[in-house]
Design a protein around this nucleic acid. Sequence first.
DNA 1: AACCAGGACGTGA
DNA 2: TCACGTCATGGT
Length: 220
Amino acid sequence: MNKIRKLYSNLLKEYGPQGWWPVNGRYNHKDYSIPQTDKERFEICVGAILTQNTSWKNVEKSLSNLRLNNMLNPNSILTCSNLKLSLLIKPSGYFNQKSKKLKLFAEFYLKQKNKIPSREQLLGVWGIGKETADSILCYGYKQNVFVVDAYTRRIFFRLNLISEEKTEYDEIRAIVESSLRSYAEINEFHALLVEHAKRHCTKAKSSCTGCPFTDCLSGI
DNA sequence: AACCAGGACGTGA
DNA sequence: TCACGTCATGGT
């Protein structure tokens, strides 16, 4: 068993299945193969954009605002004024940039119909970078794509899985995808890393005390 | 009261 | 390519 698989199984044992992506405030701990409705998928995409460098708690407020105003669909976002959209998503910050991003993505989403977008297509949309594209592919379209984020970098670096925290995005993604193959594992691994980062791997090293995994990979 | 949170883009070197 | 600055709210 390689280090990635070892870390994955330890995380799963410690925290249990995470059931990502949360839709309408709830997690799905039952079955990864259940396809989302178009509505759920679009909500996942919007959440992926709104959570850029922003806590999920703030994103939930924005999603709730959008939902209560029947705005959680591409047509409404496209026809909405910039001013109103910005106001609704204000709690999740960067509202000027993000309202622009949401409109451009809504346009792309409608043009795409129900086709699964390629990574390159998503990256071609202004405001969608690698992490957001991969979040959309993994959690919105159930593709076997691992999402790398700042937490992944920090945890991998502290556990000596990568030599520097700024290791190339696609290099880290390749490391994981060569070790974890099933959709359930790829889905869970990222979610588990987020959970672990929140509990024991925050930026301040003080959180390292009590970490269940400090030496779990040595000698493998 | 500084610092951080499930980043992406623009710029100048 | 790389290092920085910018965008903005809410919790600690």
